[in-house]
Design a protein around this nucleic acid. Structure first.
Lengths: 154, 154
DNA sequence: CGATACGGGACCGAACTGGTGCGGATTATA
DNA sequence: TATAATCCGCACCAGTTCGGTCCCGTATCG
């Protein structure tokens, strides 16, 4: 558990695909084919990524998407934030609401430290690094995850 | 987002409560009162924590719970693992299933590094540290979270 | 024997997630 | 100017998960 959403996982996949061809303007369909993610899902992701300012879109006949910045300047934390909102392990870290039960709340401040550590871990890896091929037989998704998305797609 | 389950949050609260009184054998009701978490929820949490080997239980009339080890040797990662299962940011990290699409899977190995970093972040903080009071007005939960659990419980 | 308290389930409603579809806006090309 | 390609912003749906509650069995102490 404590895992990122599957969509976010797909999102990084799409982003790395995009990072491999910085100059080109790839449309949603093309990105779907290259990343092996279902086309409608890719489209949905791209909208969010545009909204987050990570990719820029071009409309029209030969429109498509490309990274807004260099792949070295985009971190995994950026992608996660764009797709899932601000990174906050605990619910209380954001929206400083009411509920100031200081007495039973001594541990809360420590959560923020953990929060920060996790955020740094995600910020430490850039898209460029993620896109770099590694000589290793990476396995993907066990039985609990729909394989059909990746298997047998052309 | 990317947040731990609310139950896990409560779990750490209960654990720190337990850590404050290592010698005593507190029952579920007492722990609920002290941690300001609903009693049935506390009971549920404790079952999982016992199963995870973090607390030991005593049955009978004056039964209750106490930490299985010293508070300095129990980390937040332990609690999270006990309540949410193994810590794995990405779904593919666990159950090495099929789906060996090496080509489109180059980024997978990098996820494991991030995974490890997050795990270390959670392992770095012990229960003893979480229980240590801090002179700071910690705020808890914004509008999106049920306050009634904490507010007005005697 | 009886009261107390843990243990392991089943259970339910609400919220979220992944995934799909459709009408509208924008741009290049013929 | 007309047409086709493409992005955009929703609304929608089914499945799953999550938080939370309840019940009954079992163990221990007095």
């Amino acid at each position: 558990m404590l895992k990122i959403a599957k969509l976010t996982d797909y999102g990084t996949l799409v982003m790395t695909t995009l990072a491999l061809e910085p100059a080109a303007c790839l449309n949603a369909q093309e990105l779907a084919a290259r990343s092996h993610v279902a086309a409608p899902t890719v489209a949905k992701l791209l909208k969010l990524l545009v909204k987050g300012g990570l990719v820029v879109s071009t409309r029209g006949t030969h429109g498509g998407y490309r990274l807004a910045r260099g792949a070295e300047t985009i971190t995994v934390a950026d992608v996660v934030s764009a797709l899932e909102g601000p990174i906050a392990i605990t619910a209380c870290a954001q929206h400083g609401g009411g509920c100031t039960i200081e007495g039973s709340c001594t541990s809360r401040s420590n959560w923020r430290l953990i929060d920060e550590a996790v955020r740094q871990a995600l910020s430490a890896v850039t898209l460029a690094q993620m896109a770099a091929p590694r000589v290793q037989t990476a396995r993907m998704y066990g039985k609990t995850v729909p394989l059909h998305v990746f298997a047998a797609r052309e």
